[in-house]
Design a protein around this nucleic acid. Structure first.
Lengths: 341, 341
DNA sequence: TGTGGCCGCTAAACCGGTCTAGTGGCGAGA
DNA sequence: TCTCGCCACTAGACCGGTTTAGCGGCCACA
């Protein structure tokens, strides 16, 4: 037979379909002896439950969805998503839950995707990333009544669960370190200005600047691309009194910035210190290697998956903070000596 | 009502379920007038087909699967997968086909995943990447009778479709260019030795070397990681008579190699030319920017998806060659001048 | 001896679609 | 007028599971 069904198993075992279902799902209703016999037969026939049939009766699809609203280009070399994906996978697959992936152009398309997934009963839950300042997805997802977990979004975010890191503390740790080295003019090449974590980081920098009485502490928003990262760096280094340190919101932009410094003859770290807000092999491969904030994105993915599965199982939503990333000091930071010295 | 079904539509329209099904699927069996009325009502009720119900009757799941047998770490910053994913997505989503993603540890786990997907009827087809020399997945997938498309695997590969680029021609174009510049000692830092394309590239280099009578043309296999790429570069540059050009199988390794050259005081491109077999923003961000083979991985993904959908629709399998990548010359290649000169 | 409860199981409804066999009505051709 | 064919549609089986109502048998207890 091409594909065994529980009816085949029932026939082989001389019992009813119902008994087979009970046995295979570990529910009461059959004797231990019968259960073992049924399990043996199922294994012999190489039976697997038909996911559609199961989903049609029970409410569960055993799949969760992740939609990314980023054009393909900017997804590029960011290791964040692959790391996050791997972490999500690792946990989901141990629970036999599949991951549906969708890459869309913008937030509107992302919401449309969620609508369709909900309407078609394709997923049991959602993973949301790149939380925006007033994120329209939150209301949309809540309206769909789909369990969801927000990755990276901090604090109170409606009735959805979240797993996040403290971007403010992270930025403060960078600024404090740079200030301790003697830097008083610090620039910040940030990501998309609408993202919640971009705002938090920029605000933290401003706050630290006034507290530490830094002479300069500006944030320049970009679209996270290497091109804009490079352009921002050129603008910054062309100023009459350029900063002695630059903090980049992503490692790709930090590497691009390092390239611009080389191109403009600015020595790193002697004349300019560079810090990346994100870490990956990328930062270790350059010369000099970049000082960067190290966080465990893989573990973040695992945690997010665990949280999502819990919410799907009916657990109350939770707001889970992840350890603040720590600064890994490499070769791109040093006390400022300046060209003028 | 919580979720409209075709029975609700049928009741509202005063027709039978069958008529509704015909109307919604654009099949004959209802008058144009009735069809329009039914479509109106379906739209009003915000009806979406229940994917599980549809999959249970019809044979189609409207989902395809992609399993990656790579540990999370090596997935890292390779832009290849995100680009490929984006391309696959773009085409799949226009056909309302979902993509199931699975990241597993090794080939055995990958095959097990395919078995499970097939058994559970979770996917209509598969995308296979990283074709190996004698790939056990081919037999396994053929045995499962699942439509599949092989990405990157060349030539005759059993009864499965494939979409591939000519790695041999690509390597030859690099070697010819380097030889034309005057390089006679070329090293090749390659990827995993079991991968089919690694072998093709290494063989092409050997063939070109004997044809062009190069003094040196060795391939050093690595695991694609930046660490092994850096280590291989150190070994190569430490030789008594080091090569004047190095070809790297991935951009990550090329960047790592560039870092090692800087660390060892070897000037690029004056003393050493560097070519990357793969291109991405990464190669443009370094200083000097890297000469690299440019291929359109996104388009490759689109093509693979198109091919897979065709095979799922019953089209005969096809072997589709993609344009050979072209060399984008940047700042990392120049005629050899050598330290000894 | 009656009865109440539990165990182990069966039969059948059900989920929401697809698809096939069949049916009534109508027009055309003999 | 009869028959044939076609059109538009209906009724209901079906996909492969889950789940519920119910049933016979056995044991415990009064």
């Amino acid at each position: 037979m091409s594909r065994p069904t529980i009816a085949d198993i029932a026939a082989a075992a001389g019992v009813s379909k119902g008994a087979v279902s009970f046995a295979l799902n570990g529910r009461p209703g059959v004797s231990e002896q019968t259960r073992q016999r049924i399990l043996r037969i199922a294994a012999d026939l190489d039976w697997h439950p038909h996911s559609a049939a199961r989903a049609l009766s029970g409410a569960r699809t055993h799949a969760v969805g992740l939609a990314l609203a980023r054009p393909a280009r900017t997804l590029g070399i960011e290791p964040f998503f692959t790391q996050l994906l791997s972490g999500l996978q690792a946990t989901l697959s141990t629970h036999s839950v599949a991951l549906q992936l969708m890459i869309v152009e913008d937030t509107a398309a992302e919401i449309a995707t969620y609508r369709r997934w909900a309407g078609e009963h394709r997923v049991d839950g959602l993973v949301l990333v790149d939380l925006q300042a007033r994120d329209p997805r939150l209301d949309a997802v809540e309206a769909l009544k789909l369990p969801a977990v927000i990755v990276g979004g901090a604090g109170r975010v409606g009735e959805l669960s979240s797993v996040w890191v403290d971007d403010r503390e992270a930025m403060l740790s960078i600024v404090n370190y740079l200030a301790a080295l003697g830097h008083a003019r610090i620039a910040h090449v940030s990501g998309l200005p609408d993202l919640q974590h971009t705002r938090r980081r920029s605000r933290a920098l401003r706050d630290a600047a006034s507290k530490l009485q830094l002479a300069q502490a500006d944030s320049l928003p970009t679209d996270f691309s290497d091109a804009e990262g490079a352009a921002a760096t050129r603008a910054i280094l062309s100023a009459s009194e350029p900063p002695t340190a630059i903090v980049y919101d992503s490692d790709v932009m930090a590497v691009a910035g390092l390239g611009v410094a080389a191109e403009m003859g600015v020595a790193v770290p002697r004349e300019l210190s560079i810090v990346s807000f994100d870490d990956s092999t990328l930062t270790q491969v350059t010369h000099p290697a970049l000082t960067a904030l190290t966080r465990d994105t893989y573990a973040l993915g695992e945690r997010a998956a665990t949280e999502l599965l819990a919410v799907i199982d009916g657990d109350p939503t939770a707001n889970h903070q992840f350890p603040t990333p720590t600064l890994t000091v490499r070769e791109s930071t040093a006390p400022p000596t300046g060209r003028g010295h």
